[in-house]
Amino acid sequence: MREAMTPLERFALLFMDERPDRLITAPFVTTAAAAFAGVSPGACCRDGALLARAQIAAQEALRHDAFFVFSDVAIVAEAMGSVLRFAEDRVPLLDVPVVREARDVDGLPLPGPDRGRFPVYLEAVRILHETRGDRVPVFCLVPAPFTTAAGLRGAEDFLVDTIADPPLAEALVLAAERATVPLLDAIVLAGGLPALVDPLASASVAAPKTYRALALPGTRRLVERLHRLDLDVLLHVCGEITPILEDLAATGADLLSFDRAGVAEVRDAVGDRMRLAGNVSPVTILSRRAEEVLEETRRAIREGMGAPRGFVLSTGCEVPPGSPPENLAAFYRAAAAAGGVP
């Protein structure tokens, strides 16, 4: 008699270039998880226990293969002094960036794992690891340095800096990288798999040469650091990635999660070097008909299953809170039909 594998076993096999027993299904149910626990998204961002509870409730209801500890992409910038605006019904947004002028960079602190809301993430990771960590992997999504730099300076000013004042932009990214290291180390010790998310680095926002010059080096160094511990690294970049596919492969990340690109295209370009995770559009899930979700999910599976180093069925970005239940159901139905979630 064969027994089903646990999600953790599936991911472990994927990272050893082995085929798990079924399609790994790991949509980014992050902010949307709050509703499954009957709590507000805003509360989850400030309370690790609630964040963990929401993840558990969503995973028990939907039976996908991973926990994602995540609140927002400003968490590192906040720990370095940027001020965020919180609300009950959404994740926090950047309010006052800490770097107003170039000289502010020198005074940026190197936050320890007890700064800002790092303890929220770490508590959530610890709870998930202690209660479910023998069967479900706990990914903890941390902004990559380029995205954090935008949170230190304000996205618009930072993007201007990348053109008008590259040394400042570089200094910001370096400071962000240094500040990220202690958080990554602490996540591992709490039992989580640190993953890097870099929405600001996509080709929809920054030019490919900017990615190469500013985003790639720091991301690659963080991946190398995690590889020193022999951990497998998920890198998520939303938006347009086609022009930077080779650069994303050059980061050394093991599992590339992407948004706006065809799975077949990404598979053919970098699928021999990276495992792929993608990429049903959150927009489709939020605002189209269930049949369209079904069709898009089927296509992602069809194209992803041929990825030489393995494929994870996921969403291109976070599942939007308030997505119609029938659309979410359509995603999982397509996964189940392909041998994914039961």
Binding site: L8, H129, E130, G133, R135, V188, L189
Partner: peptide, 10 residues
Amino acid sequence: PSSYLPYGFR
């Protein structure tokens, strides 16, 4: 040892 924590060896 910490490298094995995320893979479940609690």
